[in-house]
Design a protein around this nucleic acid. Structure first.
Lengths: 246, 246
DNA sequence: GGTAGCCTGTGGTCAGACCACAGGAGGACG
DNA sequence: CGTCCTCCTGTGGTCTGACCACAGGCTACC
């Protein structure tokens, strides 16, 4: 029987089946999903419904699909959290579900936590951070290039903290406001001195972390972020920033 | 011409079109999207491709779809961040993209920030929180019921902070580990005394917030969360919890 | 023994069909 | 003239069947 009553949306059936397989371990990172046609037959739904579910999983960063044949073809489970988080946040910001100010505040909270945690962690690996710091000293960088490196730097910091959730969230928050950040950079009159300023702040933050001074790192990174957003004309100081602990 | 070369995946075209409309304001919360058939015709893609894009938007919490006719039918923009965030986190945890420990740590960071911010905010509205506090005093509550109220309490705290991003993230983090929390509650021998303990902690936290003591609120909420997860046998102390500032 | 070409299975896409449903327009009836 | 009932229309939800592009393995040919 083709189109009977939809007790439940067909694609939801597919989604739940896959989520369950993931949960009980039948499916794991690196594994291949059954082909769309097989899944459809197994679950008694149409292939289009299967595709809708797979599309969701793909955008969420759970699977990767490829055409052709062989072991690399088909849908493969890859837990890539950053991608999905970025898309979600970007769309929500676009749809005005998330005010820009809230995004910035959240970034502040997370970045603060990351800096403090890194400072407190004796086993931290800051190589990537230092490398980026050096790369940003290049005077030939354009504003977009500099900002791209800046994004990488903050991402590297999050990554060094070892928390995948925070790292993904940071990446998502960053990309969700990327266009606004770029826009804002155009509003800054003296970009050269701003770059110099940012470089100094970055160095100071990393120095504090390397020294194990969590308190200083926390304060410096807060000042760094709020400073830039204010200068770029984003986030009109609608109210004091979240959780200044002192 | 039906299936020509896919310069770009067709559904992505649709997604980008809608995101762009959202960005430039052509589309906003409450607005209705064109019908699937119209969108397909406009963009020169098949209806199934349009549906794949809409499905993504629906799961992400950006639109709501309804059958029938009239103003309520069709796809309507509704920025409901919590739903999408919950789904994303839940799936990522299921696919082992996010270790449980990282989820708990992140929750700790956010909840800490919320508590501190609330304590510092003189204009906070804690009515919902107090109501939940009272509701949780009911001795007839089962473990799942109590935990459901507990979830609501923490959500209410986040909501009171006014930051929609953090609120959505907290909700997502919570639901992503909901099954584990429930599971863990079964491992607690003396549930009755645990409930009493939790109640006291909740009251203490709220009292600290009401008193404007950010530092105390921060410490209490950290102890509260780590205490429960430890008791429930979740998150084997793989390492010190992120960012204990003292 | 190589190598070139076919074969197969995969995702990607489209077109067309039907269902269930909700609302509005219009007529029938009091 | 008002009210109710019925059909009509447009919407999402789903399925089927078809074709394309592609990648890899297999096979037959050299």
């Amino acid at each position: 029987m083709p189109q009977t009553v939809a007790t439940q949306r067909a694609w939801r059936t597919v989604l739940e089946r896959i989520e369950n397989d993931l949960l009980i371990g039948t499916l794991g990172p690196g594994d291949r999903l059954p082909s769309e046609r097989d899944l459809a037959a197994d679950l008694g739904v149409g292939r289009s419904s299967v595709r809708e579910a797979l599309r969701v999983l793909e955008v969420m960063g759970l699977i990767r699909t490829a055409t052709g044949s062989g072991p690399q073809a088909g849908a493969i489970v890859i837990a890539t959290p950053s991608g999905g988080m970025s898309t979600l946040l970007r769309l929500q910001v676009a749809a005005q579900g998330f005010p820009l100010a809230d995004v910035v505040q959240t970034r502040l909270v997370l970045e603060d936590a990351v800096a403090a945690a890194l400072a407190a962690d004796a086993a931290r690996d800051m190589d990537a951070v230092h490398a980026l710091l050096d790369a940003m000293d290049d005077d030939g960088l354009s504003a977009p290039e500099f900002l791209a490196l800046d994004a990488q730097l903050h991402y590297a910091l999050a990554e060094a903290s070892g928390n995948t959730v925070i790292t993904a969230m940071m990446a998502g928050l960053r990309t969700s406001i990327e266009s606004y950040v770029l826009e804002g950079s155009a509003r800054i009159e003296d970009w050269t001195s701003m770059v110099a300023h940012l470089r100094t702040e970055h160095r100071d933050i990393v120095t504090a972390i390397d020294a194990g001074d969590a308190d200083a790192a926390s304060h410096l990174i807060r000042a760094h972020i709020t400073g830039y957003y204010t200068a770029a004309g984003l986030v009109p100081d609608r109210r004091a920033v979240l959780t200044e602990n002192d």
